[in-house]
Write a protein that binds this DNA or RNA. Structure first.
Length: 658
DNA sequence: GTAGGGTTAG
């Protein structure tokens, strides 16, 4: 009766339940029940068939070593390592095939340590490791990145005369590459008597993996010229990261073209790798186009596309794809989560960010450093510095990125001195700062107005840590000089840099000249920016505001006319606040909120109070100027509106996060 | 004849 009910309701969760029930019957020896249930399943899948076969054999006869090995192999390949283990444990007789199937099964399952343990156990049982065992065990070394174990096996290979085997050699080359020892891999590769495409691919992949993109590309040419071997799809997959590392879009496009010309499509792995390459070369449109054309997609390719959007600043599109994934039957994994959290951070979506945090915790992902690092950033960026700090404190393993992020978190919130204290702690713990660390540190100095310290760290970065300043670190110093009002020094610093100034770096000088109300410098800097980016709306808006402050109304009008002529849409700022799990967003002068009247009453009241407070400080303009200035500025800035709605909706003392 | 292996995307 119960069976009948279950089978009528054939939903996916019921199907899983049926399978589980079937396993229970079969393995507990209730063969008759298992058979009855099995007969009622209209279209048994492979797994269900296997459960039956296994169950019947278990009760029927002692395992023949051939049949047992077949089962181990099959379960290992289908990802049912527990079943493989069970068969292995219960076998009355085991031979080297049984052991090798287990060693290979664990490796296939991604459990390198279990694989190595099994390898060791086999040898302790007095069974000689042959080429099969060695190849699987070396794969396991690659998985756990243990060159130490790899070398031990290498010695064994030499002792047992297995080194002449091409597959063993290839696996050794691959192992040394995966463990980061390219020099050993190269040496071994060069000593190989004959090389096939797999060996070449291993070495090319090794170069890409270890950030030697030029060597990867050169090796692929050498393969074609020296051994007359044409690249196969896997060669291309291994070459694509090299193009991405070099930001070599033209090389990447060439590989894409090669793949089309040689008829390698459709091939999911290759297509995903090309999507990733385009994204990393900043060619988002090509990535998107290929992704949309793909015949087949899976979680990995979707993750690649989500990361592509995030890397290229299209955070909304990333969120959209993420939600589509969730709506479908695909379950996001740790990589998805790690990719989507920065999108929440940039969009300041605290609530979705928290939900994703919850999801990560529920699925056991939230002890991973690569999940926790973006979470720190997300909470900091969304205004919840305490949550960011809590996550940092709770981490069992903090890497350089964790430290960089928490330093930046305090910098974002204006606590420059705290950031510097944390940086000192980081150095005391013996962690080696990288280029990004100094971006955080120098930003902190800038925020806290610590000019001398800023210079000190800028020099220390080069002298003590051998890090050449990149545009980001130069930008921090330019920003530092600008913020402290030393505009001349800032300008000459930018002009004297060893790199060509970008519009981004000029923007910091523009912001500084605005703060210093230096219109001349602002004009010349804006010209420089517009020469690099003719559609930079920020420049027009900022200049127009500066003219307004200086009462130069004709210039304000001509700026606006210029903007209209260029058909530039002013980027609208938006402030978001969350109250009782409901999100409200505000633009400047926004009156769309349901409580808009109350909000404006509070705003007027507060503005009055603020003005009273300002009365004591000297006023730069005459009262009539103030009126015009205020008229030209947002009457009700989005941040103020959001704060007001926060004030009316929460009890006294509740922190308001905008 | 029946069972085991190397390169491959986020």
């Amino acid at each position: 009766m119960r069976h009948a009910t279950i089978i009528k309701n054939g939903s996916p969760s019921f199907d899983r339940f049926v399978t589980r029930l079937l396993c229970s019957y079969a393995y507990l020896g209730y063969t008759a029940d298992a058979l009855r249930l099995f007969e009622n399943i209209s279209n048994p899948d492979t797994f269900q068939w296997n459960v039956m076969i296994r169950g019947l054999i278990e009760v029927g006869l002692d395992l023949d070593v051939y049949i047992g090995n077949s089962f181990i192999s099959m379960y290992g390949k289908t990802g049912c390592i527990d079943f493989a283990e069970k068969v292995f444990d219960e076998m009355p007789m085991r031979d080297s095939v049984s052991w090798n199937s287990m060693i290979g099964g664990y490796a296939l399952d991604g459990d390198g340590w279990k694989s190595l343990l099994c390898f060791q156990e086999m040898m302790e049982c007095g069974i000689e490791a042959d080429r099969f065992s060695v190849i699987s065990a070396l794969t396991a070394c690659s998985l756990v990145k243990s060159v130490k174990h790899g070398m031990e096996i290498h010695y064994h290979v030499i002792r047992c005369g297995l080194l002449s085997d091409v597959m063993v050699q290839t696996t050794l080359v691959d192992m040394y590459c995966k463990c980061g020892n390219v020099a050993f891999a190269e040496h071994l590769f060069n000593s190989m008597f004959q090389r096939n495409i797999v060996a070449w691919n291993s070495l090319i992949g090794g170069y890409s993996l270890n950030d030697h993109p030029h060597e990867a590309l050169l090796t692929s040419v050498e393969m074609q010229e020296r051994d007359k071997i044409n690249p196969n799809p896997i060669t291309l997959v291994n070459l694509l990261p090299a193009c991405a590392q070099l930001r070599g879009l033209s090389r990447g496009k060439l590989i894409h073209a090669t793949a089309i010309r040689r008829g390698f499509f459709p091939f999911l792995v290759l297509e995903t790798a090309i999507v990733d390459m385009y994204a990393k070369c900043g060619e988002l449109r090509s990535a998107e186009q290929l992704f949309e054309q793909m015949m087949e997609k899976n979680l990995i390719s979707c993750n690649a596309m989500i990361a592509a959007y995030v890397q290229n600043g299209q955070n909304r599109k990333a969120m959209e794809l993420f939600h589509n994934l969730e709506k479908g039957s695909v379950k996001p994994d740790a990589v998805t989560i790690a990719s989507i959290i920065p999108a929440c951070a940039e969009l300041a979506l605290l609530r979705p960010g928290r939900q994703i945090h919850g999801y990560a915790t529920k699925n056991g992902y939230s002890s991973n450093t690569f999940i926790l690092n973006p979470l720190i950033y997300m909470y900091a960026k969304c205004g919840d510095l305490q949550a960011a700090q809590r996550i940092f404190d709770s981490m069992l393993f903090r890497d350089v990125v964790s430290w960089n992020t928490i330093i930046m978190a305090y910098a974002i919130h204006g606590f420059g001195r705290t950031s510097i204290e944390i940086f000192t702690q980081m150095q005391e713990k013996g962690l080696k700062p990288n280029g990004s660390t100094f971006v955080s540190v120098l930003s902190s100095c800038s925020i806290a107005g610590m000019v001398d310290e800023g210079w000190m760290y800028f020099n220390s970065m080069q002298q003590d840590y051998n890090i050449n300043p990149q545009i980001e670190q130069y930008g921090c110093i330019a920003d530092l000089l600008g913020r402290t009002g030393d505009l001349e020094k800032a300008e000459s610093f930018i002009l004297d840099m060893s790199l060509v100034p970008t519009s981004w770096i000029w923007e910091s000088l523009l912001a500084a000249s605005r703060n210093a109300r230096n219109i001349e410098l602002a004009e010349s800097t804006a010209e420089r920016i517009l020469a690099l980016e003719h559609d930079n709306t920020g420049c027009y808006v900022l200049l127009s505001n500066m003219y307004a402050e200086a009462k130069r109304w004709e210039d304000v009008d001509s700026m606006r006319a210029l903007m209209k002529k260029e058909i530039l849409e002013k980027t609208r700022g938006c402030s978001i606040i969350e109250i009782n799990s409901l999100t409200s967003s505000f633009f400047n002068n926004d009156t769309s909120h349901i409580e808009t009247n109350t909000i404006h009453e509070v705003l007027d009241f507060l503005s009055q109070k603020i003005r009273e407070g300002i009365q004591t400080t000297p006023i730069k303009f005459k009262p009539t100027d103030i009126l015009r200035t205020e008229a030209s500025l947002p009457r009700s800035h989005s941040v103020r509106l959001a704060i007001c709605v926060g004030l009316i909706s929460t009890t006294v003392g509740t922190p308001i996060l905008v």
